Computed example of a mutant assay.
Amino acid sequence: MLVDLFENRLALALIVVLGVPAVLVLYIVAVEALLTRVSRRVSAAVRPWLWLAPALGFLGVFLVYPTLATIYRSFQNRRGDAFSGLENYVWFFTRSDTLIALRNNVLWVLLLPLLVVALGLGIAVLVDRVRYEVVVKSVVFLPMAISFVAAGVIWRLMYDLNPNTGTLNAALDLVNGPRVAWLSTSPINNLMLILVGVWMFTGLAMVILSAGLKGISAELLEAARIDGANEREVFRFVILPLLAPTIAVVATTVIIFALKTFDIVYVMTNGNFETDVIANTMYKELFANGQQGRAAAVAVVLLLATVPVMILNVKRFKQQEEVR
């Protein structure tokens, strides 16, 4: 049975790796052959859409259709055989546990980007053009090499109440401090979870902001210093305005992650002790409670929370393109 399963997976992998590109190549050849039979004006108008058709088809099947189906499902009952109107949404916005999850997501959205951008920018500025810059950046960026699940396991052990396992409580024991149940004491447990995300994302923010910092003309900074500006004024009035677009990119990326955070919370607390977030609520309603309608409603709420951030990001990108 294992041999058959392996052979089936191998066949599926060969189809994906070899079959899909072959089909796309045949599609392009067929399209070009058909376009040679029509006028140049018609082919010029039709060719872009025919080339985009496979990608649009994939987007429709794997993105648009699931989104519309989820929205449709959010208005149905648990069994999916009758419409329940706004009942699932009323449930979400009137339950204390779901409101706690919504509150925690707000905390993630506010604190995670602020801390990540501040630390990433601070490290990028402090280690810029020093001899050990590469070493520091490698160490700070290292957490990005592991998964969020692995990070959750690592930090769950570090937060353990037993000082023989928990690094933080072992440090408190050294100074005769009281042991703290970091993951079960509210509201400090939410902050400790957010710090795991900060540990993961600071390296990414540092690399991107450091690249933006190195793109600032050294002559411009020197001119500001010659005009009498001290280092604090150079940073505030020259570096920060020029880095604003890069900071916006980093902040947007982190905000989107904060909105849909799941792995860290699921691994470390599973939403217990008032640490639940929207994505984890959706997971529990779907797989633990079998409430597909409620899970779909939670997914739609999460989608609606993400859309404004994406719209702002697109507008900012268009403004940058207009300036260029």
Rank of each mutant, 00 (worst) to 15 (best):
R225D: 09
R225N: 08
R225Y: 10
R225C: 04
I226A: 09
I226P: 02
I226V: 15
D227K: 00
D227N: 04
G228W: 05
G228V: 04
A229N: 09
A229Q: 10
A229G: 07
A229S: 15
A229E: 09
N230L: 09
N230P: 10
E231I: 00
R232D: 03
R232P: 00
E233D: 13
E233A: 15
V234H: 11
V234W: 11
F235M: 14
F235V: 13
F235E: 04
R236N: 06
R236G: 06
R236F: 12
F237E: 03
F237T: 08
V238C: 12
I239H: 08
I239E: 12
L240V: 15
L240R: 13
L240T: 11
L240M: 15
P241A: 00
L242Y: 05
L242W: 08
L242V: 05
L242M: 14
L243C: 01
A244T: 04
A244V: 03
P245L: 04
P245I: 07
P245C: 08
P245F: 03
P245H: 06
P245E: 04
T246P: 01
T246I: 06
T246E: 04
I247H: 11
I247Y: 03
I247T: 12
A248L: 13
V249P: 01
V249Q: 09
V250I: 11
V250T: 11
A251R: 01
T252M: 10
T252F: 10
T253S: 10
T253E: 00
T253C: 05
T253F: 15
V254G: 08
V254P: 06
V254A: 10
V254Q: 10
I256S: 09
I256R: 05
I256H: 09
I256N: 06
F257V: 10
F257I: 06
A258T: 01
L259P: 01
L259Q: 13
L259I: 15
K260F: 02
K260W: 05
K260G: 12
T261I: 11
T261P: 00
T261Y: 06
T261G: 06
F262W: 02
D263S: 05
D263A: 07
I264C: 03
I264K: 01
V265Q: 02
V265H: 05
V265M: 08
V265I: 15
V265P: 01
Y266F: 15
Y266D: 12
V267H: 02
V267F: 03
V267L: 02
V267A: 01
M268P: 05
M268V: 09
T269K: 09
N270H: 13
N270K: 14
G271H: 07
G271K: 04
G271R: 01
N272V: 08
N272A: 15
N272I: 03
F273V: 05
F273E: 09
E274L: 14
E274P: 00
T275P: 08
T275V: 10
T275F: 12
T275G: 07
D276W: 09
D276F: 03
D276M: 10
V277W: 09
I278H: 02
I278A: 02
I278Y: 01
I278M: 05
A279D: 07
A279R: 07
N280M: 11
N280D: 01
N280W: 12
N280P: 00
T281I: 05
M282C: 06
Y283P: 02
Y283Q: 12
K284F: 13
E285L: 14
L286H: 08
L286K: 11
L286R: 14
L286W: 15
F287W: 15
A288R: 13
N289C: 00
G290T: 11
G290F: 13
Q291M: 10
Q291K: 14
